[in-house]
Design a protein around this nucleic acid. Sequence first.
DNA 1: CAAATTCATTGATCTATATCAATATTTAAA
DNA 2: TTTAAATATTGATATAGATCAATGAATTTG
Lengths: 258, 258
Amino acid sequence: MPTRKFETVISLRDIKVACQECSLKEICLPVGIGQEDLDRLDAIIDRKRPLARGDHLFRVGDGFQSIYAVRSGSLKTYTTSQDGQEQVMGFQLPGELVGLDAIAEDSHPLAAKALETTSVCEIPFTDLESLSGQIGGLQRQLLRVMSQEIRDDEHNMVILGQKSAEQRLAAFLISLSNRFRRRGFSATQFNLSMSRSDIGNYLGLALETVSRLFTRFQNEGLLRVDRKHIELLDREKLCTYSGAQCAEDDVLQAEPNN
Amino acid sequence: MPTRKFETVISLRDIKVACQECSLKEICLPVGIGQEDLDRLDAIIDRKRPLARGDHLFRVGDGFQSIYAVRSGSLKTYTTSQDGQEQVMGFQLPGELVGLDAIAEDSHPLAAKALETTSVCEIPFTDLESLSGQIGGLQRQLLRVMSQEIRDDEHNMVILGQKSAEQRLAAFLISLSNRFRRRGFSATQFNLSMSRSDIGNYLGLALETVSRLFTRFQNEGLLRVDRKHIELLDREKLCTYSGAQCAEDDVLQAEPNN
DNA sequence: CAAATTCATTGATCTATATCAATATTTAAA
DNA sequence: TTTAAATATTGATATAGATCAATGAATTTG
């Protein structure tokens, strides 16, 4: 919840913040990169000033220059079909990357819009590319990140392809919870920066269905909802509801390397 | 339709076939790689003997060693959820790659099974990785291919998230048609190597729905179906049905660089 | 070649979830 | 603060497509 005033403070201060100090460094570039190489990587990363809610980081068709890492806040990515129908493709939380799908054709197939005040790191791709030719660990990490994204998308396919509304929303909440936790936020209490309509669109459900499910989950004692605020009361049961192997997820994703 | 006899012939002959002669070379490694580099790449690629229908190329949880390019035939990739329910994630046609989703965790999240007699090139990943550190064009191409895969998965999300049964099947057929054409096969006449059930599963539909739609499309004069054989009679109308920007697709994907 | 198995088609019915509609709440604007 | 515009909730109804069920090809097996 940075204020306008805060904005200018950030731009003064952040410009000097190095990757080493960035809370996201294990996520952006986890493994096997030495201090020296890290400095080189740091040198190419550009810290932009925050986006306001509703601002676009990029739009469909924009030329591809950079990938971005969310530092704080959140984004949604989406397309609009020719009949004006919007399809939400994903939500990006702190520590997550956007824009990897633009490499193939040198242009962004999705738009990315800030759901709240959001700041990102910009990583110019040509620099990253040439650097990753020199630093083995970086190349590998880049491939891993992309591979993981493919995997996540496959997971979404399963959800959209054969899960019930109830399972979809449960899985969505568990996924958010895991992602928050991994970044050091609370796994049981968080704010949804996206609207019910965004959630529904993302999950292939009507927004009314999402709303009804929230009330139902609340009545069943699984969680507490207050507008945007969510408190998960029975994570385990929610996992069961999601019909997924998310106990496994818990083990694998909980505090991976702290 | 290679026979058993043919199999041994292949193994004798293929072992000498170089990437340069491979009809897939523009697909596997399209751009900006010189002859010399191509030889180096060729040296690491292993040509395996064909898989029979039903054989697995790899299974869920198998350690990740290589990615594979389909040379002939076709594969399906799928997972099985804990309740035994299968989810088909994709079909791979000649010239397409499988296994990119295994890089992230060093193990295959999906199984890959031959839908018919199928031969593949095996590309050991560590070799590919070190080579791509040396050959700029290769690194870039690898990233492009992965990026494209993310894009394709995003496209699938749109289809599963908000298209009707009719639109899904139409889009599926158009996609197959485009992919066949790009590889030099007929765009209007082809065989489905997968069952109705596989198609339905992939599209998030019941197999009965798929069957009904085939008959309906046929009655409307859009296509002719005879068991596995498909002949597209009105591609344009099918595009309209799919509710997609596939006229665009046609332009972009038709014979990209011949 | 017959028997068994798998796969596909077609019909009848049921249901999860969309859609339509009204109201309430929150946020933004004036 | 008042008004306007989003956004969310809740209810009533409609429907696309699932599920159940029976039959008919095709393919595989012994």
